[in-house]
Simulated assay, not measured.
Amino acid sequence: MAKSLKLVLAQPEDTPGIIASAVYAEGRRVAEVPIAEVGEWSRRPGHVVWIGLHEPGLALLRQLQAEFGLHDLAIEDALKAHQRPKLEQYGEALFVVARTAQMLDGRIAFGETHLFVGHGYVVSVRHGASTTYTPVRERCEADPGTLSGGEDYILYAILDFIVDNYMPVIEAIQSEVEEIEDCILAETSTQVHVRRLYQLRRDLLRLRNAAVPLVEVCRRLEQPGLPGIDPVMSPHFRDVSDHIRRVQEEIESLREVLAFAFETSLMAGQAQQTEITRKLAAWAAILAVPTAVAGIYGMNFEHMPELRWQYGYAVVLAIIVSVCGWLYWRFRQNRWL
């Protein structure tokens, strides 16, 4: 009894990379346990160890490998953190990779979450831009009935949280696109807006590549036969798949809006350039009249019409002003000026 009480009161090691290390029984938190004891707790009937890591080092991953018997390839993938979303089965354990996304300084920052799932344990490894999973843990602990579902429910809760966090990113981009569209319609768009539209389209393509492969991951989790995945959880993973498809639809719709906005901004820029060209051509035509007349009378010939007439200068000026005024009126009529 004393030994058991000591374990319950123990706190996890103050090791860099460890966010949480807790053991649960029937959906209720039993203890905060150090990494050196997680293997023993996971082998106890009805107990599940849930460990959260953030950018751990190789030594910590090797320690977990020794405790849970994790595969070398899974450890290697979890350390490198440059993986596509996927699900791998190593014996009686599963290794799941999911991409995370959040808005940072106006751009989509991507991260990765690696999940080790086996009998009696779940280990989440976060890399890069990723929201902490503390809210997931708190929500699960608030409902012991659902958390008692075990490691497959924890896997579902984390995947669902990752997918739900795609929507704020999409909504932020959608709001910015609407502002840029207003600028385009108001004919106040600039080259900065055009570059921003291109950046957003590229970011959305990366978000699509990060989110869509999770559909296949959830489809496999729905199928019977995977170790540690209860068939009762199939509707939950199907629900995650539906959320991903909704995210995909939103991304495709937003990319089309961005494409239209991008084309509209280019057309507006071309129209503006055409308008400027017209004005320049109109003024060039008007200025050509005095230039031509002055060029003729600037030639050094002795016998020129009206050269010695006392009213010649005034008449020429009147003709120049009249012709230029008529050209200006005609261009205004044609909306070139």
Rank of each mutant, 00 (worst) to 15 (best):
V316H: 01
Y297A: 01
M103K: 05
A10G: 06
A210G: 13
L287D: 10
I154K: 00
A2D: 14
E32H: 10
Y156P: 00
E275C: 07
R84W: 06
E67N: 07
R28E: 10
V257I: 15
K6R: 12
G150H: 02
A93Y: 02
R126M: 10
R220V: 03
D164G: 14
A93N: 15
L9Q: 14
W309H: 12
G46I: 02
P168H: 10
K80S: 09
G46E: 07
V96Y: 00
A22T: 11
Q273W: 04
A294R: 09
T100P: 03
Q199W: 07
G145P: 03
R137W: 03
E76V: 03
K279R: 15
T134S: 14
G106V: 09
D77V: 04
A78F: 03
G149L: 09
A98D: 06
A172W: 06
E249K: 09
K3H: 15
E55A: 11
F68L: 11
Q248C: 10
N334W: 11
Y297V: 05
E263H: 09
Y311A: 11
L87S: 02
A142V: 05
R84V: 10
L9C: 15
S4Q: 13
A81Q: 09
A282N: 05
S4V: 10
F68C: 05
D239F: 01
Y166Q: 02
L185W: 09
L60E: 07
P56W: 01
Q270D: 11
S124L: 03
T134N: 12
K3I: 12
Q63W: 02
E67C: 04
Q273Y: 14
L287Y: 06
R308S: 14
Q248I: 07
D239W: 02
V177M: 13
L337V: 04
L159N: 00
M304A: 06
P231S: 08
G295S: 11
E181G: 10
E13K: 07
R238S: 08
A81M: 05
V169M: 02
P34Y: 08
S42C: 13
V321T: 15
R330K: 13
G57P: 08
